[in-house]
Write a protein that binds this DNA or RNA. Structure first.
Length: 566
RNA sequence: UGGGGAAUAGUGUAACGGCAGCACGACUGACUCUGGAUCAGUUAGUCGAGGUUCAAAUCCUCGUUCCCCAGCCA
């Protein structure tokens, strides 16, 4: 985890870390650094949350004695579920962060919040309002016109106290009344136009059950929750900048501890969507198989796809933190992925689209055990044995009946290296009735055992992968592409919908692949590189009889690039 | 025509009045038992107009463009 710790790099601090460092310098919080990651448990975490998680937990970890809480902002019982709480905890832990025993819930503060609401009523700073939701909107005015005072704004403190108590007691139906802060209906900042503090909601909360029928609004909860937890730096996204004056107002009116709020730009990525609303729609609309569909930008989706926590952390570190509303090229994510996977993934051979290769001069009953390097980037990963025999599977793409000059693979009369095997020269090929090549014949050179160059100094341009037909294990491969066909799926013409931009080819299932026998015992979640093809990861759907692999990412493919150009 | 933010290569991000740098991408080339990886190189930028200054991405003025805000969502 140290490699992606920005403080270990000699580079400059981002503006948030700079503020923290400055506050440390002036002793503003007596040397304390205390952050928090405050998700609402109403959906699964995505890569954008990972940026926030890395920022908050990262800053805590980089500063001596620093702490980061995990707090669920669960103030809306209608949308929140335990399933989400559990998934969020799992994802944060998987990303490599630890909140120790500091797992908090805004709902744990409901009593305190209620008491504070009463305090504001007593101070004449809050009132019970009988206006309907529509009327409140009407009274609020517009962005350019001031609002009007609610006719209930000047109720006596006693009446407000009584009404609020009866709201809590359940005497009124949902929406009948609200508790509002008495601030300024003419404020230029709309958030200050007597915002609702409490609403009536006869709903069962995932933690407090039926204890409450009134629930505090997020705005009346968040700042005080940070205050209760003695957070020093409340890091949040840009859209809450407009709310800061309101949080300040509550905290000042309540005369409680004041954290410092810092806003940064949320992460956007090309070729995907990041809003919870849209992700929910993809799930509920059946456009993907679930929150953890490997095409989803959710943490669980990325995990199932084969991303490692290190790769995600590295990405979060490299994208930086700023206030500019930006969209990061998804290729940068893929770069961080490959960088990590290249270092750590064991190499293995697998054939996705099999074509039979028969080595006519190789003994029919012979099986040789060839030595293969597990990871050229990591000598300590050692070597393994792979069986070689007369009949092999090779990739259909690795043979061309009439190959162009720059094609380095197999073609009539051409010689290639079978990786860790032998040099083979194509002597013949067989076609079926549909004119498709179904079998290739070749002869091997015994002097090239293990794939070594022969004594005559002969060289080959191409090296291809293979598996022994008699020893290979069947497998299914799921190949993924971007979920959307355009960089910004949200950019749709009038009347259009972001799902119009869904990529119909984002998933390709290749059902009949062959993988080398060493993969037989591979467990769900384990990662490897199929040589020349890409990084793959065993899917939870996998069984010993039928292995299932997700393609995490392709290898960079210069040949594909050359082909694309012509 | 309200308020709050933000603008630096294609993308993301540094430079805190003193040589505009890094990463990704793209493009060359070298090397290679993965057309992988690696290495070397090329490409390309301060939103605009004024001003202050020996010196401005940075400070000032006036513009332009983009984002957020009118939930009893968070």
């Amino acid at each position: 985890m140290s490699s992606d710790n920005p403080n270990n790099a000699s580079g400059p601090l981002d503006f948030v870390r700079q503020i923290v460092a400055d506050d440390l310098g002036t002793g503003k919080y007596q040397g304390r650094v205390h952050t928090r990651f405050p998700p609402e448990p109403n959906g699964y975490l995505h890569i954008g949350h990972a940026k926030s998680i890395c920022l908050n937990f990262g800053i805590a970890a980089e500063n001596a004695g620093g702490l980061c809480n995990l707090r669920f902002d669960d103030t809306n019982p209608c949308k929140e579920e335990v399933e989400y709480v559990e998934s969020i905890k799992q994802d944060v832990r998987w990303l490599g962060f630890d909140w120790a025993d500091r797992e908090y819930y805004a709902s744990d503060y409901f009593d305190q919040l209620h008491e504070w609401a009463v305090r504001l009523i007593r101070k004449g700073k809050a009132y019970v309002c009988d206006l309907s939701a529509d009327e409140i909107r009407e009274y609020r005015g517009t962005l350019t016109q001031p609002g009007r005072n609610s006719p209930y704004r000047d109720r006596s403190i006693e009446e407000n106290l009584d009404l609020f108590a009866r709201m809590r007691a359940g005497e009124f139906p949902d929406g009948a009344r609200t508790l509002r802060a008495k601030i300024d209906m003419a404020a230029a900042n709309v958030n200050l136009r007597d915002p609702v503090m409490y609403r009536i909601l006869h709903a069962t909360h995932h933690r407090t059950g039926d204890k409450w029928c009134i629930y505090p609004m997020y705005d009346f909860t968040h700042g005080q929750s940070d205050s209760i937890e003695r957070i020093t730096h409340s890091i949040c996204t840009l859209e809450f900048e407009n709310h800061r004056p309101l949080y300040d107002w509550y905290i000042d009116a309540l005369e409680i501890y004041h954290p410092r709020q810092i806003e940064f730009a949320r992460l956007n990525l090309t070729y995907t969507v990041m809003s919870k609303r849209r992700l929910l729609e993809l799930v509920q609309g059946g456009h993907v198989r679930g929150w953890d569909d490997p095409r989803m930008p959710t943490i669980s989706g990325l995990r199932r796809r084969g991303y490692s926590p290190e790769a995600i952390r590295g990405f979060c570190s490299v994208v930086g933190v700023a206030k500019f509303n930006s969209t990061v090229d998804i290729q940068l994510l893929e770069h961080c992925l490959r960088e990590e996977l290249n270092r750590t993934s064991p190499r293995v051979m697998a054939v996705l689209r099999p074509l039979k290769l028969v080595i006519d001069n190789y003994p029919a009953d012979l099986v040789e055990e060839m030595d293969a390097v597990n990871n050229p980037e990591d000598p300590s990963a050692g070597t393994r044995k792979i069986p070689f025999s007369r009949e092999l599977w090779i990739e259909q793409d690795d043979f061309m009946e009439d190959p162009p000059k720059k094609y380095f693979r197999l073609g009539p009369g051409r010689e290639v290296r079978l990786r860790y095997g032998y040099f083979v020269r194509c002597t013949d090929f067989v076609k079926d009735a549909a004119n498709r090549v179904v079998e290739v014949h070749a002869t091997y050179d015994p002097a090239t055992r293990g794939g070594e160059s022969p004594p005559d100094g002969r060289k080959v341009q191409g090296t291809i992968h293979w598996v022994s037909a008699a020893h290979a294990r069947p497998a299914e491969a799921r190949l993924y592409d971007h979920l959307f066909t355009v960089e910004d799926p949200g950019d749709v013409p009038e009347g259009g919908h972001f799902t119009d931009n869904l990529n119909p080819r984002s998933l390709e299932v290749v059902p009949r692949c062959w993988v080398e026998p060493s993969l037989a015992a591979a467990r769900a979640g384990s990662r490897c590189q199929f040589e020349r093809l890409g990084y793959f990861c065993v899917d939870p759907d996998s069984t010993p009889e039928r292995l299932v692999f997700n393609r995490t990412a392709t290898l960079k493919d210069t040949w594909a690039k050359i082909q694309k150009r012509t």
